[in-house]
């Protein structure tokens, strides 16, 4: 058993597997879509086995505390990263001002087979947001207002945006550049209950000139085309702030050859009911990210570096830095002292 482990622990194999990992990483450069994840997983697994065997059998690692910590941490990082991939979750969601988070609204969901978070415990309500733009339409800071449970039955206000995600139950919500306006509509079908909902327009200001969408009411034969004419203060040359609360939107409704312009509160009679434009709202696109290993990865890698630091500290302390020699004459500090200490038994340490 030990003999097998010692073979698996060969440092020559370490170099070979490192080279393989280098090739795998090079193939993954810039994330080409056609590179399979195996080019990384296989060398990492081989390195993991090699490293584990070395940690068990090689006294040059396991008798030296700092170096041992470092190599165990390397192994830990590989194991944690693998566990992270199995349990992670990534998705996107668009939330309208005033709307609560609903897991069923998530789109582009990708998750590991072992994902089991408490997504059903995540509660927050989207509020308004602002996005600063600098001259030349360069996006600046985003401030997205949300309400989160305060733990006492009420709601607490929080502002997130850019590199400050909203973190609830380990799920991290990042604002994205994908955000825009929505029209709040109430559909009052003939003889039915009124229903209020929103129509999301494409991302703003990216699709400034395509603020349109369409919808077909239940039972209707013809779809309704919506176009939002916006006044947002947009200024391609100067600085401005995108803020739905300070913007105005006229909703152009086109159906069955008719074209009607609605101001907030305005209604239009259609085939099977009445449509009311309640007003302008906004939606924010979030990226959701969940990985339960994040803080463990951080702690493990920092411990690893600490171990390496301890190892080098000891190593350097044992062997003083060499001093220069003043042309054959010994300098006042015995020039060769360091040199001798460094070359021990003919081996450079």
């Amino acid at each position: 058993m030990i003999a097998v482990l010692k073979r698996l622990a060969s440092i020559r194999l370490t170099l070979l597997w490192m080279a393989l990992l280098g090739i795998g990483a090079a193939l993954s450069y810039d994330n080409p879509v056609d590179t399979p994840v195996w080019v990384l997983v296989v060398p990492l697994a081989l390195l993991g086995v090699n490293l584990l065997a070395a940690i068990i059998t090689n006294t040059r690692i396991n008798r030296r505390g700092g170096l041992l910590i470092f190599h165990v941490a390397l192994l830990g990082i590989v194991v944690l990263a693998a566990f992270g991939r199995l349990t992670h979750m990534e998705a996107h969601i668009e939330l309208v001002d005033g709307m609560g988070f609903m897991p069923e609204r998530l789109i582009n969901v990708r998750q590991g087979p072992l994902h089991s978070g408490r997504l059903d415990q995540v509660h927050f309500i989207q509020g308004p947001y602002t996005v600063e733009y600098r001259p030349g339409m360069v996006r600046g800071l985003t401030h997205s207002h949300v309400l989160i449970p305060d733990g006492a039955g009420g709601w607490e206000r929080k502002v997130v945006g850019d590199d400050r995600p909203l973190i609830l139950e380990g799920y991290r919500f990042y604002t994205t550049f994908n955000k825009g306006f929505a029209a709040v509509l109430t559909w009052m079908p003939d003889g039915g209950q009124p229903e209020t909902g929103t129509i999301h327009m494409p991302s703003y200001p990216l699709f400034e000139f395509r603020q349109a969408n369409r919808w077909t009411p239940a039972g209707a034969s013809e779809e309704i085309k919506f176009w939002l004419q916006l006044e947002t203060g947009i200024d391609p040359e100067g600085a401005w702030v995108l803020d739905a609360r300070k913007s105005r939107g006229t909703l152009v409704v086109r159906t069955g050859g008719r074209r009607v312009e609605l101001q907030p509160g305005g209604t239009v009679r259609l085939e099977h009911g009445v449509l009311r434009y309640d007003g302008l709202s906004s939606w924010m696109g979030y990226k959701l990210y969940y990985d339960p290993t994040l803080q463990w990865l951080f702690i493990t890698s920092m411990l690893g570096v600490l171990g390496l630091g301890i190892h080098f500290w000891k190593k350097f302390a044992n062997h003083p830095w060499p001093q220069p020699d003043d042309g054959g004459k010994r300098s006042e500090r015995d020039a060769s002292r360091g040199g001798k200490a460094i070359i021990e038994e003919g081996r450079v340490i």
């Binding site: 370490t14 490192m18 280098g22 990483a25 810039d30 400050r164 994040l294």
Partner: peptide, 29 residues
């Protein structure tokens, strides 16, 4: 992780700096 919602994604700069780290580790070994 804070800025783009992922800690590692093999983008060009990440891959290049990882290769550099690996190269250094391999050379030391």
């Amino acid at each position: 992780q804070d800025a783009w919602g992922r800690y590692w994604a093999w983008d060009a700069l990440e891959t290049s700096s990882f290769l550099n780290w690996l190269m250094l580790g391999a050379a030391i070994h």
